[in-house]
Structure formats: C-alpha cells, structure tokens
Design a protein around this nucleic acid. Structure first.
Length: 259
DNA sequence: ATGGTCGGCTTCCGA
C-alpha cells in the first residue's frame, strides 16, 4: 500500500455502536484505529465481528465506563495497557502498541468537569503523566501517533462559541496549556496543519440539537512525532458519521501517512 | 413551546 490510514473514534459504547462501527470500518477502511469509550469489559467487546473485517484487536476495557482499544490490519506488538506514571489508575484510558512500523496510542483523557473539583485535578494529573510519557516517546525518534479524545478544546477556533465553554473543563487555560506543552515538545497537530482556518469539529452534544445547529467542538486529536509528521499527507474529520442514525456524539478523525 | 440526549453499573450517573 502507498499510505497508512490511521483513525481515532470515540464510539460511546462499542456494543450499542457495533453496526455503525462495522459500517464505518468497511467504508473508511483505516489501517489502524484508536477507539475510546468502549463502555465494556474486555470479554464484552464484540471482537469476532471486527476480526472478520481483517483487524487485529487489542483492548483495555472497563465495566460500564471508559475503555480503549486498538484495531490494526497488521499484527500488534509490545502492547502496553495503562498510562506510565498512572499505574494505580483504576480507569481504563490508555493503550499503546507497535504496528506497521508505528508506535500508536489510543487515549481517553478525563473530562474533568466540574472545574475545581477532584475530577478536574485528576484530569490535570493525568495530562501531566501523558506529557512525561510523550517526552519519552519523542526521545526515541520513532514515528509515533498519540490519538484519541483529549477532552481539550485547544483554541477559540475549535469551538462554535468560545463564551459558551468558558466555564467548562474542556476549555480551561490549565488544560489548554497542557495541549500546547505537547506541541512545544514537538508533537504536530495534523488537523490544525491541514485546516488552519478551524471549524473542524469532532464532537456535538446529543443535547439541545447541537448537531443540527453545528454547535460543535474539536476535542479528538491525533498528535504526530516529527518522524511521523514528515510523512503526513491528509488529515480529515469524518463529519458525515455524526449525522447517521444511532451515531456516536463524536465523529471519527483520520490521517494518512506516506509509506 | 413552558419542551427537545444517550449508554450503561438504569429510576441514577457520567458525559
């Protein structure tokens, strides 16, 4: 193949979303997929149906909430479950593996609402551990992708109406500063690079007709190490997925890397 | 319109 397609998709319940997920895998045909919010334990993940489409499946599940997975058309090696530095974290939010010559992580960062709660402190602590681990990955000078739901709106142009999000954990300066820190480290945000004018939303709340009014935000990101960014071709949001029946509240985001 | 979400550990919680 001439390119490798890598996607991230917060599916908001892999069992409730299975028909949508399978349809999307068939039409979009990514080589590697990072899934978040499985809301299922490992043995509840419908892996046979996914494997039937030609994917290897690695999960880090949890009963009822959270849960992340990696799908890849090529075998995965050196699978790591849980974020380094958060070994005691009972929440399943991180899985990383090597496939197709890439180190890939599926990330589900904490939401952190309400602001100034223990949940918000946990969010910042979790992001600090991610930053530390991201520095280790960069030092290896390998093609790496950190993809998932960061629960961070990086800039004002990443939401329909910044003032509507001022008091939300997703738009707090401390959270946005941590996303910037990753970029200063050297990680490249391919959607920002390919769509500098913004308006590349990835999440629309189920509530209040947000999809119909396009009240969206961009919180799902793929960050690329420099050796991966050197190979970047396209970066897009599968916005149409959000408009389908029984859709997740997130849309998939994907990139292609030249081989 | 005074209302209008969804998934799962379902009559409450997390998002």
């Amino acid at each position: 193949m001439a390119e490798t397609k890598i996607a991230t998709f917060n599916i908001n319940g892999i069992r409730a979303r299975l028909p949508r997920l399978l349809d999307w895998l068939k039409t979009s045909a990514p080589d590697i997929v990072c899934l978040q919010e499985l809301k299922a334990e490992d043995d509840q993940v419908p892996r046979l149906e996914i494997e039937a489409l030609g994917y290897h499946v690695e999960t880090h599940g949890q009963k009822g909430f959270n849960g992340v997975a990696l799908l890849s058309k090529t075998p995965m090696e050196d699978v790591r479950r849980g974020l380094p530095g958060m070994e005691d974290d009972p929440q399943a939010r991180y899985i990383e593996a090597t496939s197709a010559g890439l180190r890939v992580a599926s990330i589900y960062a904490p939401n952190g609402n309400p602001v100034n709660s223990e949940k918000f402190a946990y969010k910042l602590r979790w992001l600090d551990a991610l930053i530390a681990h991201a520095a280790d990955l960069l030092a290896q000078e390998i093609p790496a992708v950190l993809a998932g739901d960061y629960n961070i709106i990086p800039e004002e142009e990443d939401c329909h109406e910044p003032d509507a999000w001022r008091d939300d954990a997703l738009f707090q300066p401390q959270a946005r500063a941590r996303f910037r820190q990753l970029r200063w480290q050297g990680w490249v945000d391919p959607i920002r690079q390919r769509h500098p004018d913004g308006d590349q939303f990835t999440f629309w709340d189920y509530k209040g007709g947000a999809w119909t009014k396009d009240y969206g935000i961009r919180i799902d990101h793929l960050l690329l190490s420099p050796p991966a960014a050197d190979r970047l071709d396209r970066a897009e949001v599968d916005r149409m997925e959000r408009g389908r029946e029984k859709a997740s509240d997130h849309a998939p985001v994907w990139i292609t890397l030249k081989d």
